[in-house]
Amino acid sequence: MDQLNNYLFIAAALFSIGLFGVMTRRNGIAVLMGVELILNAANINFIAFSRFGGMNLDGHIFGLIVIVLAAAEAAVALAIVINIYNNMNTINIDDASTMKE
């Protein structure tokens, strides 16, 4: 059981760091990196629960899906960031506020 806790702690730390990054960074790339951290924290949890929870390969499959998802997400998000940069000459997400009323 201790082992599971360890994984969970790491995942929680990773999640918190990711969250912190998402919330505090103004740089769009950095925010994306935070998201990646959060996703990977989730992955760790999936694998850990899969391993210790007696579920066969369910966790692994979900982990793979998340990785795929993360890759897709990174591709789309980076494309957005590049477009923002092209249009606004910045990747500071606070400046991208033209949709605000």
């Binding site: 969250l19 998402v22 919330m23 925010v31 997400i93 506020s97 949709m99």
Partner: peptide, 12 residues
């Protein structure tokens, strides 16, 4: 606010 990170903060 229109600031994404605020929303995330609220969600959290």
């Amino acid at each position: 606010t229109g600031k994404l990170q605020n929303y995330v903060l609220y969600v959290t």
